[in-house]
């Protein structure tokens, strides 16, 4: 028989995970609106793969199947993969990505709670290194026709008609290839993929994620530390460089509203398992990701740097945690809050 406390708050991992999924919905809705329903196919594909892989791994490791399968953590990973991969990526890309996340990044490290790296980001990094071109084919905004998209996922691929470089990609390519002549303003003005604030369409998706993030904050599933530190760092550093050399560096609004910034801020950086847990540690951790993201975006070879930034900071997380232990009750003299 169990011991005290005999009362437990009605909370469970499952309810946490389900609310995370719920919070993703506004962003997904905007996604579908601007880029078509292909992303839903990817989500379904990733979910099924993730659940099957999770079940197989649990069985192999002799864990209670229903208990862990029902926790919903595999679904969250699957959805994040589906949302960070191009929606018109061939089906096997998503499947391999999900398998890498669930089997390698999660279960080979000991399952939920023991994984040092964010599984979704492991999948993304792995795939973009292995299949850089497939991972950069994104649907053009406004081409929401379902049939060609479906074809792109499952059938022989005829992509030109429906793809377009993502804003980040377009900017990077332009700046890198045309070197001296291209300026940020010029590129942003010239291409159809740039909207008013960030990337066209993407800004609305980002707004959807932001909304979901607010919900998570309100539900106290995440704390303000990580999103704030991440977004602020990105804002400050991109702002500073844009002010210093507006020709070569995109401004903060562009950085915040394109790519995975919002999704990252509220859903990826905040993964509790692989991140920091102390309040101060969270600030350092997320700020580090913000900084690395910007560096990779501005100078790196890949269009978006969140995945690599997250993985790099995952390595540092335990160290940060260890050095940011909050003072214990009665030992706060240094901060002057007690006696």
């Amino acid at each position: 028989m169990h011991n005290s406390p005999y009362f437990l708050k009605p909370a469970s991992v499952r309810s946490v995970m389900l609310r995370v999924l719920l919070a993703l919905l506004p962003g997904i809705a905007a996604y579908v609106w601007f880029f078509g329903a292909a992303v839903l196919v990817q989500i379904a594909l990733a979910s099924v793969t993730a659940l099957l892989a999770e079940a197989a791994m649990l069985k192999l490791r002799g864990k209670p199947l229903m208990l862990y399968l029902g926790d919903g953590s595999a679904l969250v990973t699957a959805w994040l993969i589906a949302l960070t991969f191009p929606p018109i990526a061939p089906w096997w890309l998503t499947v391999i990505g999900v398998l890498a996340a669930i089997v390698v990044a999660k279960h080979l490290y000991g399952g939920l709670g023991q994984n040092p790296f964010n599984p979704a980001m492991v999948a993304f990094a792995l795939m973009i290194v292995a299949y850089p071109s497939l991972m950069s084919q994104w649907p053009a905004v406004g081409f929401t026709d379902f049939a060609p998209q479906l074809n792109a996922i499952f059938g022989p691929r005829q992509l030109d008609a429906i793809t377009m470089a993502t804003p980040l990609d377009a900017l990077r390519t332009a700046l890198h290839t045309e070197e001296a002549r291209a300026t940020v303003a010029g590129v942003l003005g010239s291409s159809a993929s740039f909207g008013n604030i960030g990337g066209k369409g993407w800004e609305w998706v980002a707004a959807g994620y932001f909304l979901g993030g607010l919900y998570l904050l309100q539900q106290r599933i995440i704390t303000w530390h990580m999103p704030a530190a991440f977004l602020l760092t990105l804002l400050v550093i991109s702002g500073a460089f844009a002010a210093f050399d507006p020709g070569h560096f995109a401004g903060p609004s562009f950085h915040l509203f394109t790519g995975g910034a919002m999704l990252g801020a509220f859903f990826i950086v905040t993964d509790p398992v692989s991140g920091c847990t102390t309040p101060r540690g969270k600030l350092f951790f997320a700020a580090g990701i913000g900084l690395l993201t910007w560096i990779i975006r501005a100078f790196g070879a890949y269009p978006d740097g969140i995945a690599f930034a997250v993985l790099l900071m995952n390595i540092a997380a335990p160290l940060i945690d260890m050095n940011t232990q909050p003072p214990v009750f009665g030992h706060k003299d240094k901060r002057g809050s007690a006696k």
């Binding site: 490791r61 002799g62 864990k63 209670p64 208990l67 000991g110 399952g111 023991q114």
Partner: peptide, 8 residues
């Protein structure tokens, strides 16, 4: 109780 073969 429910995880007898908890290896890790």
């Amino acid at each position: 109780k429910l995880t007898p073969s908890r290896k890790e």
